[in-house]
């Protein structure tokens, strides 16, 4: 499923004195298979945008398609049957586009982990047999790296912070979405928890979920993990590209109110004194490129 949108607009507090544009003409394409990063400072429209992708916020103006689903604004009045159709479509869309909000553990509600994780499955696929539900739930819990037998009957409220977050993510991936959107998935985690979560996302991306979209404030994480990145600023996408393309212009990144990844800072400053390091902006690649540069200049000297 590709995501395509053009000239998307959205207003908050319509018809009041607080009116403000949350989206100010967003145009963006996200191809299937990407590990896509969305960056931008708070209030740049990122959260509003991602909530459009599964129809939580209806399109006010502009074109938006997610796979075969057309969420664009139409002026044509719909018949009752069409409305019903639309509602079913919306359910299917939400099944295909999973959304993990910030601090997802605060949405846990059920008595047991099993009930919470299977909530989405039961909503989206009401006709499944209990055994089928059990299998999907078990898969999801195991996919996020938890022990199904040990955890399934526990109350989600008695788990540790990291486990709660995993359970919440399991609850979203249980219905097998093909796109998974996560808003600041690492917020509040300790370094180990953070690394483990990024690893989990990569393994999901390799095995079960085609497209992953991550909203993040941490440029070092984005530089190290994403295949493509879009920069939001004042309700618009002002640049898209690979992390390499994007972070090579560090002046631009700081102009958007974002911090420049350390690797990009180093590359840029080395370039300024005539040292060209070719790398994407992951730590290991940067180190390799720099080591190679040293080796090559040594050779040249000999």
């Amino acid at each position: 499923m590709d995501i395509f949108c053009k000239d998307l607009y959205y207003q908050y507090n319509k018809n009041t004195e607080f009116v403000s544009y949350a989206l100010n003409g967003v145009s963006l394409t996200i191809k299937e298979g990407e590990f896509f990063g969305i960056i931008g400072h708070t209030g740049s429209g990122k959260s509003t945008f991602i909530q459009h992708l599964n129809g939580l916020i209806p399109v006010e103006q502009g074109i938006l398609t997610v796979g075969d689903y057309d969420l664009s604004k139409t002026d044509v009045k719909k018949s009752k049957k069409e409305k019903k159709q639309l509602k079913d479509n919306l359910k299917n869309l939400r099944r295909s586009v999973g959304m993990v909000f910030q601090y997802p553990e605060y949405q846990l509600f059920a008595e047991t982990v099993f009930d919470d994780v299977s909530f989405g499955i039961k909503n989206f696929m009401p006709n499944l047999s209990p055994e089928e539900v059990r299998i999907l739930t078990k898969n999801a819990i195991e996919t996020v790296g938890l022990d199904y037998e040990k955890i399934k009957d526990k109350s989600p409220f008695e788990l540790s912070g990291g486990q709660k977050r995993r359970v919440a993510i399991a609850g979203v991936i249980a219905s097998r979405p093909s796109i998974l959107i996560l808003d600041e998935p690492c917020a509040g985690l300790d370094p180990t928890g953070k690394t483990a979560l990024w690893n989990l996302l990569h393994s999901l991306h390799e095995r079960v979920i085609k497209t992953i979209i991550v909203v993040s404030h941490d440029m070092n994480d984005v530089a190290s993990n994403c295949t493509s990145v879009a920069v939001f600023n004042r309700g618009k996408v002002i640049k898209t590209g690979t992390p390499k393309e994007l972070f090579s212009d560090s002046a631009f990144i700081s102009d958007c109110g974002l911090e420049v990844p350390v690797t990009a800072y180093l590359t840029e400053n080395l370039k300024n004194v005539g040292i060209k390091i070719d790398s994407d902006y992951t730590i290991n690649r940067f180190a390799e490129s720099f080591a190679n540069y040293l080796k090559n200049t040594e050779k040249a000297d000999l």
């Binding site: 909530q51 599964n54 939580l56 359910k91 939400r94 099944r95 999973g98 959304m99 909000f101 997802p104 605060y106 949405q107 909530f119 989405g120 909503n123 989206f124 609850g171 979203v172 219905s175």
Partner: peptide, 13 residues
């Protein structure tokens, strides 16, 4: 609002 959105995303009706 946030919780409603999150549960809707999980198919709540």
């Amino acid at each position: 609002e946030r919780i409603i959105a999150a549960q809707k995303a999980r198919g709540a009706d």
